[in-house]
Each structure stands twice: as structure tokens, then as C-alpha cells.
Design a protein around this nucleic acid. Structure first.
Length: 282
DNA sequence: CGGATGTCTGTCGTGTTTAC
DNA sequence: GTAAACACGACAGACATCCG
């Protein structure tokens, strides 16, 4: 937590380079609050650092995105400094951070390998959201393989063996489904109906309209009853007249987004939405 | 009561990728 | 080459809850 404090105090209009310089010049906090031991513990040495830093300043949909100049920018400098000071040999960073900036922070001591990771590479062809993992390895390490070549080799093999469809993520049992239905009824101030198979009664007006509109669009385009397609998923957090967020075209569950934590992923065939645990797997 | 804080919900845009 | 499909989070308003 103390590392974050350093990052926060450096947020200013002086630009990323100035912030990074300040971070690099700040005293390093070697101890932090430890929940495991309920006290203050020394930050342990690790051989491999796996970090996922905030992506909001690098996200395409953020109209005001400022990349490294955004509020989370200094955090990357804090992360980089820790690698340097502790001499951590290897790190994996999950974030679409500018490689040029990263190179400026670590390029003198580390080799940097960006890995474009597709969900298909691990068999999740039925899910969306590709990632960028940046592998950072100390130049003092002996390199046995090129990480990108190795990754591509494994990914190709995975793709040929595993391949999911949206329906593979639909596995919740009746108890879990009814628990979610009950909770939604509570939040929305509606009456829970334990005997009703379809959860459509729990959708609000806007969501019901979205389902109708998407049903219409599906019928029009595929000349088929949407309820017959077990791989069909509608995302109800968007207005379909604005953008159709569904699995009908790319055969993937639409991307899970942070704003729409409560946005439902509707399954026309099952007449319910994906439960939280199903979404975790997707 | 009413202010502070937290949760839920819905709207908004555009650069990149994919399909034809 | 062109058009359609897609990816993705800030923000604001409504509403709920807490606390003095």
C-alpha cells in the first residue's frame, strides 16, 4: 500500500517523465501492511513478479485517456523501480502500456517481450477479450528460448486441441440460478417467483425491450428462432439500436466490461442470464 | 432531517479488426 | 477497398443506507 502512496503523491501536471524521476528519487518503502500476519512485514523477495496494473488510462473506450500521463501513470514507474531496486530477475505485466515508455523505464537492465495473447490460445474461443502480457527479463539471465516463439508454439498446439463455444460456459445448477434470481428480485424490488422457469419477468423495461429488439434482429438476419441457438448470448447493458452486443456474429460471449457489473448477459435458449460464476469462467 | 457515502443503472464514441 | 462488427470505461443520475 505504501508503494501506492508514492504513486499518488506524484500525480501532477509535470508529465510522466517528471513523475518517473520523482518516483526513482523517492526513498523506497521496504515494509508494508500484511494481512496474512496482521502487522507490518517486509516486502518479500521474489524471483518472478506477476502484476496487473490499472488499464483505465490506456483503454480505447476511455475518451479522455491520457496513457502514461493519466493518474495511474506513476504506478508503472513505482512497479518498474521495485524490479530495479530488488533485482527481480523476471516479471510479467498484464497491461497495454506503451512499450516505448516501458523501455525507457527498464530497457537498460531488462529485455522486454510483448506477448499478444488471444483467448483462443488457451482454448477459450467462445470468450472475448484478448490481452497483452509483457514479459520482462533481466539481461543477466541466460535466455534458453525466445518467449514469443515458445508462446506461439504452445498456443498453436492449444488451439488445435481445445476450442470452446459460448454454451460451454452455461453450466450453473438450478440452485445457483434461483439464488441469482432471488437477489435480482431483491435489488430491483420485485417479487421472486420460485416456480417460474423463465427469468424474463425480472428484466426491467429497458432490458425487455433490448431482448425484443435483438430477437427481431436475429430473426431478420438468420431466419431462425433465437431460442433454438444455445450459443446465443445478448449483452443487455448496451442499447441494441446503438450497438448490438451479442454472440450471433463472432460466436463469442461479448466482452465483460467494468461499467456494466450489473449488466446482464441474456441466454435466449435458457431464458436466463449468465450467473456470476459462469461469467468468471468466461 | 439532511449531508455523506455507497450502489445500481444507463448513456455515450471512435479507432481497429474482421468480413465481404 | 469498403462496410460492418467490435472493443471497451468515464460519467452522471437515481436511489439506498448510514450517521449525527
Amino acid at each position: 500500500m505504501r508503494l501506492f502512496a508514492v504513486a499518488r503523491c506524484c500525480q501532477s501536471v509535470t508529465g510522466f517523465q517528471e513523475n518517473a524521476k520523482a518516483v526513482y528519487a523517492s526513498p523506497l518503502v521496504a515494509c508494508g501492511k500484511c494481512l496474512a500476519h496482521a502487522g507490518t512485514c517486509k516486502v518479500p523477495h521474489v524471483d518472478l513478479d506477476v502484476s496487473g496494473l490499472p488499464c483505465v488510462d490506456n483503454s480505447r473506450i476511455n475518451i479522455k485517456r491520457a496513457f502514461e500521463e493519466g493518474g495511474t501513470g506513476p504506478l508503472f514507474a513505482v512497479w518498474a523501480r521495485r524490479l530495479r531496486v530488488y533485482g527481480i530477475p523476471m516479471a510479467i505485466l498484464e497491461n497495454d502500456f506503451k512499450l516505448g515508455i516501458l523501455s525507457g523505464l527498464l530497457g537498460d537492465l531488462y529485455n522486454i517481450y510483448p506477448l499478444q495473447v488471444k483467448t483462443d490460445d488457451v482454448g477459450h474461443s467462445g470468450a472475448s477479450r484478448n490481452r497483452l502480457y509483457i514479459i520482462v527479463v533481466s539481461k543477466q539471465c541466460e535466455q534458453l528460448k525466445d518467449p514469443v516463439q515458445l508462446y506461439n508454439f504452445v498456443a498453436e498446439r492449444n488451439r488445435s486441441v481445445f476450442s470452446t463455444q459460448p454454451k460451454d460456459y452455461v453450466f450453473a445448477d438450478e440452485f445457483e440460478i434461483q439464488c441469482e434470481a432471488f437477489e435480482t428480485a431483491r435489488v430491483r424490488g420485485m417479487t421472486f417467483r420460485s416456480s417460474e422457469f423463465s427469468l424474463a419477468y425480472l428484466l426491467n423495461d429497458r432490458e425487455q425491450k433490448a431482448v425484443l429488439k435483438l430477437d427481431e434482429m436475429y430473426m431478420e438476419r438468420f431466419r431462425e428462432d433465437p431460442r433454438k441457438n444455445e450459443n446465443l448470448v445478448y449483452f443487455l447493458g448496451d442499447d441494441p439500436s446503438w450497438t448490438a452486443s451479442w454472440s450471433a456474429v463472432n460466436h463469442r460471449i461479448p466482452t465483460f466490461r467494468t461499467n456494466c457489473g450489473t449488466g446482464k448477459y441474456w441466454l435466449p435458449a435458457a431464458q436466463r442470464w449468465l450467473t456470476s460464476s459462469e461469467r468468471l469462467h468466461g
